[in-house]
Computed example of a mutant assay.
Amino acid sequence: MKVALATTLSLAAAAQAAVQGFDISHYQPNVDFAAAKSAGARFVIIKATEGTTYTDPSFSSHYTGATNAGLIRGGYHFAHPGSSTGAAQADYFLAHGGGWSGDGITLPGMLDLESGSSGECWGLSASQMVSWIKSFSDQYHSKTGRYPMIYTSPAWWQDCTGNSNAFASTNPLVLAHYSSSVGPIPGGWPYQTIWQNADSYAYGGDSDIFNGSEDRLRALATG
């Protein structure tokens, strides 16, 4: 993974390419994946789970639709830090669609870190949050050989982890920042792997931009 991250960094520095994608959940029950691909999208990240009790009802149909359209695809887990261990939530995610295989069309799972019903930081201190994320990340890595992507915004990462740099060399960053430019990169990451640049996309969900060429996107899905 560190080799893949370093390679993507060199591509990012040279500003060689970017690839359109999007992310979706059951809030978009009907997605025209073929039309999205025809319009230039090459990947989609699909909500699979929350906590240890919730599975997204549209995950299976979304995953099948994306696969049939020839899109690179992967699942994401909406974290409930503090309600159970990170390892337990990683296991739940893996058991309900969050797995990975090096087939060139499956992205490593994404850990979605943002505010929830328990408040912005889910009642955890910064050090507790870092430990929780590490528990999830290490468990996912132990089961798949890959570290999960981490989705966050600069403000959330600062407020809830103290801007920890504990994951900068292992976990690809999916940066949420709705703007015409990427903006500041949190947590010691040298670059973002994927930029969620808008909260709407023509074919549903949010707009995502991969930071590199389509070949590098496929490499991320290969391992």
Rank of each mutant, 00 (worst) to 15 (best):
K2T: 13
A14W: 08
A15I: 08
V19Q: 05
S25V: 01
P29A: 12
D32A: 15
K37L: 04
A39Q: 11
I45T: 07
I46D: 03
E50L: 07
T53C: 00
D56F: 07
D56A: 05
S58I: 01
S58L: 06
A66G: 11
T67Y: 04
T67S: 14
G74S: 04
G82F: 07
S83D: 09
A88C: 01
Q89C: 10
A90V: 02
S101R: 14
T106L: 08
L107A: 02
M110T: 06
E114C: 14
S117K: 05
E120N: 12
M129H: 12
V130M: 14
S131Q: 12
S135N: 15
F136W: 13
S137F: 03
D138L: 12
Q139H: 15
Y140A: 08
H141F: 15
S142F: 06
K143D: 14
Y151K: 12
S153P: 11
S153R: 06
P154E: 13
P154G: 01
Q158E: 15
C160P: 00
A168H: 05
N171D: 02
P172W: 09
H177P: 05
Y178L: 10
S180W: 05
G183Y: 01
P184S: 15
I185S: 06
P186L: 04
G187I: 04
W189S: 01
A202N: 14
G204Y: 07
G205W: 01
D206V: 08
D208Q: 07
E214R: 08
R218K: 15
L220G: 10
